[in-house]
Design a protein around this nucleic acid. Structure first.
Lengths: 204, 204
DNA sequence: TTGACAACATACTATTCAGTATGTTGTCAT
DNA sequence: ATGACAACATACTGAATAGTATGTTGTCAA
């Protein structure tokens, strides 16, 4: 077995397995041995690719989580005339329709922020960049919607972008803590109500 | 030194030190030895009071965090005619005026929810109870405000209570991740705007 | 085709950690 | 005052863990 040697493929395998493990048990709750065991590789391969466990964590943020944010929360908005509709729709699809077991794991980004930001500067910097990426991209989309008259002319898109990202993390956190899928609909309703107050005119 | 033996005092000392340590480094990031070292006691005392590290964690939720929720976010609302004003004021006082170093630590409850809920059932149950306590108490306060005509008659107080608690956790999480105190004002503004939409009439 | 290096595998180490075993001492009822 | 037990202190253990040292093998340029 495993004759083929492919640097990039191996790295991706490690990252993929590590992501799931860290997502499930937290960064501090996962050992390098845990990750290696779920891989077709060994410890030697791991430390050939990542000088330390922390470096793996950093790579998870940069190479897995950041693209995931764009993929899940930004790109899909392009097909909506009103981005607020897109945001609500994506939330319903990606959060509202998740299984309770999956919701229990929360949001990969938020998990790492809560766990690692206060205790490691390297994580803090990278997670901060990832969060700001999310906010910036949301802001850009909102700015477009404002220009095209969908949003009221007096709304501060930066403020709203902050609030939207905060809401995503908050909803993930609540569902993770409460273990009650019905709460999603409740939170969704309130967010929808908020969105209506910043649109130029609500339609029926 | 330490001649006086006081079961209750000792327990409180352990809980107090453990709270700060867990708050700062996460539950998995703190060792029993770490906690003991910051105490005037030894490991023997620790295991005399708590059969296992997990039991200490449970006690932190039940005996420290739950009272703290009531103290910080529920009791102060009693002195406001409009509880929404009280909530905004408390947020400004307890979050908006915090130092960046303190904000970096986040919310004790939210931290534990994000870290421990998915990986331990005992934590999950207790954290769920704590969260529901917060929501229930908020709901009760909102119900009163609705009856006295401060809130619109068609608002679902349970939904709003969920949203308010979610917002607290979300704001804590964002400030923890972004390390930018100005974001508080931004989020505060949006929340205020939302509150205005559920009040009977906004005053100037 | 071969040697040289990259891409791994294997075996080991020092440390840390939760928990235990056992010893000591303060306190209190009688 | 004194035993008896609760409230601790001290010393230890086995398992887990991040990281290392060193070996093996695939691959590719010349």
């Amino acid at each position: 077995m495993r004759k083929g040697r492919d640097l990039d493929k191996t790295r991706k395998e490690i990252l993929e397995v590590a992501f799931i493990e860290v997502f499930s048990h937290g960064f501090q709750g996962v050992s390098v041995d845990d990750i290696v065991k779920k891989t077709s590789l060994t410890k030697g391969a791991f430390y050939h690719h990542f000088p330390t466990k922390l470096d793996l964590g950093y790579a998870l943020v940069d190479d897995v989580i950041k693209p995931m944010i764009i993929d899940r929360w930004i790109t899909p908005l392009a097909s909506y005339e009103n981005p607020l509709d897109g945001i609500l729709k994506q939330m319903k699809n990606l959060i509202g329709k998740s299984t309770p077991e999956h919701l229990r794991l929360g949001c990969p980004l938020n998990n790492l922020v809560q766990e690692m930001s206060p205790i490691d500067a390297g994580f803090r910097e990278r997670l901060q960049i990832a969060l700001n990426l999310w906010i910036d991209e949301t802001d850009t989309v909102l700015k477009r919607a404002k220009k095209s008259g969908i949003l009221k002319s007096d709304v501060n898109t930066r403020h709203v972008a902050n609030f939207i990202v905060m809401t995503h993390e908050g909803i993930y956190g609540m569902l993770k803590g409460l273990d009650d899928p019905k709460v999603f609909d409740s939170l969704y309703d309130s967010l929808k109500r908020f969105f209506q107050t910043i649109q130029a005119q609500s339609r029926l």
